[in-house]
Write a protein that binds this DNA or RNA. Structure first.
Length: 293
DNA sequence: AGCTCTTCCTGAAAGC
DNA sequence: TGCTTTCAGGAAGAGC
């Protein structure tokens, strides 16, 4: 569910209600997605939430130095990744608790910041300030901030399929399966094209397509495919603008050809076989995927 | 370097 | 109806 626009939507919601508030205690359910569960209870109570922002698909809560806790002088970031089904939002204690809610951060005003994650593919960890640069450098560039020349540099010479690189968070951070397909459709580039074979016009179109798609999706507060809701519990609307993702067999919005689905980079990929021409090599290879077992 | 397959987990939808 | 299989917005690791 959560790619860059959905995470941005969650972050914007949290930013209006969290900064300035202090975590008083932490309650945990299942913790197998938390790097160091005990550290949450040890290090977070007494810290004030100073900032809420997003890095790719990661949410960062910037926390003040602790009061009497150990290492009181050090600031810490709480880093949260929503995985496939994660959700983070603020509720009152009397509000019903959604199933699969596994972390409650109690705030000084009585409210609770809750983390819910059905599949627990999310991640939660504390990153001390001295570890932050290393963390950030493990991620690629923000797709909404990358210049045209950096965009080209990141992809030039790469023999991987363009879709695989768009999904690679160390190249650009924040693009997932939906927005990769939507951007490639918009740019009229087949997902299985090798990045090194894209010409400069195609690279330019792709960068612009990514920008347009992501910005519009953020305006629409993300895509709600099955159960994504924002920090307030409202669904997004961008799914109504999908042009490729999930549209197998339906007519292309540009040319009317039926949208096809194929596995590229190990993921379901939707594209228009007419607007997005397959690379020559590929047409001979890769027909049927062998059924295992 | 890059590809495919597997795994983590739960639930919805499709298949029989 | 009911049981089984497949698939899902993510990502890391193994093996080739």
């Amino acid at each position: 569910m959560p790619e860059l626009p959905e995470v941005e939507t969650i972050v914007r919601g949290l930013r209006t209600v969290l900064p300035g508030h202090t975590i008083t205690s932490v309650r945990l359910g299942k913790t197998d997605f938390i790097e160091d569960p005990a550290a949450l209870g040890e290090l977070l109570p007494g810290r004030r939430i100073e900032a809420v922002d997003r890095m790719g698909k990661f949410i960062r809560l910037g926390l003040s130095a602790g009061p009497t806790a150990k290492n009181p002088e050090r600031q810490i970031d709480l880093i949260v990744h929503l995985g496939m089904t994660g959700w983070l939002g603020v509720r009152r204690p009397e509000d019903p608790v959604a199933p699969h809610t596994h972390v409650f951060f109690e705030l000084e005003d009585g409210r609770e910041l809750r983390y819910t994650d059905i599949r627990r593919f999310g991640q939660m960890r504390l990153v001390p300030c001295e570890g932050f640069d290393a963390f950030r450098e493990s991620l690629g560039m923000e797709p909404l901030e990358v210049s045209a020349s950096d965009f080209g540099k990141r992809l030039s010479g790469r023999r991987a399929r363009i879709k695989a690189l768009l999904l690679d968070q160390s190249v650009f951070r924040g693009i997932g399966n939906i927005y990769a397909d939507e951007s490639l459709w918009q740019a009229r580039i087949h997902p299985a094209r090798l990045a090194a074979r894209l010409n400069s016009a195609e690279l330019g179109r792709l960068r612009q397509a990514i920008r347009r798609v992501l910005l519009r999706a953020i305006e629409d507060r993300g895509s709600s495919i099955s159960n994504f809701v924002d920090a307030e519990g409202q669904p997004g609307e961008y799914q109504q603008r999908h042009r490729a993702y999930g549209r197998e067999g339906k007519p292309c919005f540009r040319c009317g050809t039926k949208i096809r689905r194929a596995i590229v980079a190990g993921r379901s990929s939707y594209f228009c076989p007419r607007c997005q021409r397959a690379p020559r090599k590929l047409r001979s290879i890769r027909r049927q995927s062998p059924k295992r077992k």
